[in-house]
Amino acid sequence: MKIRVKFGKEGALIYIGHLDLMRAFQKLFRKAELPVAFSEGFNPHMLMSFAQPLSVGMSSEGEYLDARLKEDIDTEEALKKLKEIVPADLPIYAVKHIPDEKKMGAMTVLSKARYKVFAPVVPNDSSLHTIAIADGLHMESEIEKFLGSEHLISPKMTKTKVEEWDIRPLIHELLFNDNGFELLLSCGSKANLKPQAVIEAFYEFTGMKVPKDLHYRRIEMYSEVGPL
């Protein structure tokens, strides 16, 4: 038996790293008395996995984690219990059953993610109050030119060196509306493109500087058939 939990990360909690978030969920699951299964061996740990880690500093309203259960639960009941105990900045949106097979796991089926990029009026405010960042740019035509490129070569940091790669095939949508960018990018184990790389490449393409204090927010994650 497996469940998938959809959650968000806001406010102060965007500064909590991935491993610490995982430990927080282990504690929350204990508090909520969810019967999460444990691994065997000397160091048993809860069997749970996140669809995709979120970078520190990014907010989200579309995060997912899968957990294997020892026994079945009522997902509505679990959602209610979790909502009661989580901090406000870690909202829980949904709990649903998912198939047991590994190939159906969030990490495996994930293929794309949607992001918004904007400049918050108040620092650390992840809601969509934005200040204008398009000054002096005709965004629509610039984006059209940018996306019209056959290749978009961008630097990629590996553990040992900086490599170049073509990010154009991984950009599925790039729009500008409401003073912010909206992006749909490849995401997951097969191909993963961070929105920061696209924004940097775009501003370089236009010959402008990247605006200061941009906030990156993940909106949703998708498999080939729809939201996770």
Binding site: G11, A12, L13, K27, D89, N124, D125
Partner: peptide
Amino acid sequence: MLNELALSPEILLSVEKPARYVGNEIN
């Protein structure tokens, strides 16, 4: 969600373990 922190994102993302300074822990 509005949550005013004493430190800007710029500072928080420049220091080791920003979670040390943002509070909001459980309990």
